[in-house]
């Protein structure tokens, strides 16, 4: 998985690309690092460039949610489609994280 980031006054946006899976834990550290330094109140994870996510990848989204919550930052996931959307729906991640279409 690769990611790009951009910041606005209101939010940090991270766009994930490729596959998010169990071998990507080091990338998670990098993204949590962005959360740790942001002063914005919003954190957007854009999955529109993601082709595949496994159960470990979904676990990483939940970790980001916890990390954001603990810093009073609002996390939003958006842009999931195809197989990524299927996995998110199967695991009912939308009951825990705000998922925008």
């Amino acid at each position: 998985m690769k990611f790009q980031q951009r910041s606005t006054p209101d939010a940090v946006e991270v766009r994930l690309m490729g596959r998010l899976e169990f071998t990507d834990h080091d990338r998670l550290h990098d993204i949590v690092g962005l959360l740790e330094i942001t002063r914005a109140r919003g954190f957007v994870v854009d999955l529109s460039g993601l082709e595949f996510i496994d159960s470990a990848g979904l676990g990483m989204l939940l970790i980001l949610q916890e990390e954001a919550e603990s810093r009073n930052v609002k996390l939003t996931v958006r842009g999931a489609q195809g197989d990524v959307r299927r996995s998110i729906d199967l695991a009912r991640i939308g009951e825990i994280i705000t998922i925008d279409s």
Binding site: S55, A56, G59, L62, L90, I96
Partner: peptide, 16 residues
């Protein structure tokens, strides 16, 4: 616990 960070692999396998 829906917030659990593991255990969904078998959920996927059993569902699909």
């Amino acid at each position: 616990d829906g917030k659990a960070q593991s255990g969904r692999g078998f959920l996927f396998m059993r569902a699909l």
